[in-house]
Amino acid sequence: MNVSTVIGAILIVVVGSFVWWQNGADEVVSTTPPTVENSAPAPSVIGTNAVVDDNGGERKDSESDDTNAGSETAANPPPAPSGMTAALVAQHGTRASCWSIVNGNVYDLTSWIPKHPGGEQAILQICGTDGSLKFNRQHGGDSAKEKMLFGFKIGALAQ
């Protein structure tokens, strides 16, 4: 083993440790793609900016009011993310499983709730509902936001 190899090995360890530390070791597990045990069908994700500015919606964080959320367990995962109906989306109206319809597509916004710069409430308002109006009002025509939203897409809304 020569000096070059040793330097290279040190670099790998140092960079890996640094990034680990930078991201916070505690958060690492929580940001990996969801598994059957804890998630909607597809690992959702991302975006960097808000979806909705409307705080007047009647929908609230509904961890306690969704009677359907408990029907999906580790042994009984949600259905495959295709041909989704509005009724199916409505079953995912909680913080634990937040799906929303935007312009004909279904998005799993669960992991985005705590990261939404505009506040959790803006996302929670559209969980289980058609959020097209709110999204378009806030971000309509913004291709960057639409691209970010795509990262959460889990399927198309069945007609």
């Binding site: 890996g16 793609p33 690992p43 991302i46 990262g151």
Partner: peptide, 29 residues
């Protein structure tokens, strides 16, 4: 690379739509 492994959530928005359609797997993967 490590950033994507340790905090993949912050990288999914960079995945282009064509890549998702082509590979037919979720962006996070």
């Amino acid at each position: 690379g490590f950033s994507q492994l340790f905090d993949g959530l912050n990288w999914v928005s960079w995945v282009p739509e064509w890549a998702v359609n082509f590979l037919n797997i979720p962006p996070a993967f």
